[in-house]
């Protein structure tokens, strides 16, 4: 039962949507609308999962005095402090917003922007004309690099035109095939899930 019940639940839930969509029985459509709401609210009820997971991981770091355990302690203090404050005040409280603007927003932006630097060193060290294919990739990449910013047009109007042609014709055609392929692959995966052939998403400890 422990293995079969989740699979049956998933199958019934999925089939209900499919039947409601393709056969449009009035009763099914109503049930589907109710389940839409249920799925939304059940997801919301799991709102503490992220915090619990972080607490478990970082509590262990602190208890075992692992490297950077001080950072783990700071993480827990920041997380629970902000959470409790936010719980009592709300998302439009001025201090709550200030903390967001002063920390989450700039830190999130800065962390992701580091990738620009790594890309430069990667472009220098790895983007090489080793084969004919690599040469084509390099040529397209170089035209794209210039054509993606105003400098391309400033050098020659041919550069943005070439970039647009490559993007809109060659790239779109290749990506169209990839989109069709991945969509078909996704449908196959969904059928496997509904039929209980694919169960890895149910993994975890305990049977």
């Amino acid at each position: 039962m422990r293995r079969q019940l989740p699979v049956w639940l998933g199958f019934i839930a999925g089939m209900l949507v499919i039947i409601a969509r393709y056969f449009a029985f009035p009763g099914f459509t109503q049930v589907q609308k109710t389940l839409d709401n249920w799925a939304m609210y059940s997801g919301a009820a799991a709102f503490l999962m992220g915090m619990i997971n972080l607490t478990i991981v970082h509590k262990t770091n602190i208890q075992r005095r692992r490297e950077n355990w001080g950072a783990s302690l700071v993480l827990l203090i920041a997380m629970f402090g902000y959470f409790i404050y936010g719980l009592f005040t709300g998302p439009d409280d001025k201090l709550f917003v200030s903390i967001f603007n002063a920390t989450i927003s700039p830190l999130g932006s800065a962390m992701f922007s580091l990738l620009a630097f790594y890309m430069l060193s990667a472009a220098y060290r790895a983007f090489r004309m080793k084969t004919l294919e690599a040469t084509i990739l390099l040529a397209a990449g170089l035209i794209g690099i210039l054509g993606n910013a105003p400098i391309g047009a400033a050098i020659s109007p041919w550069i943005p035109s070439a970039r647009n042609w490559m993007t809109e014709i060659l790239n779109t055609a290749a990506m169209r095939a990839v989109t069709i392929g991945t969509a078909l692959g996704a449908y196959a995966a969904m059928v496997r899930i509904l039929l209980g052939i694919e169960r890895s998403y149910l993994g975890g400890r305990g049977d």
Binding site: A123, Y124, R125, I145, L146, N148, I151, A154
Partner: peptide, 14 residues
Amino acid sequence: SAAHALFFVFVVLG
């Protein structure tokens, strides 16, 4: 634009 030019130069130099 300036950054893209830098990328271009370094890819060519590489």
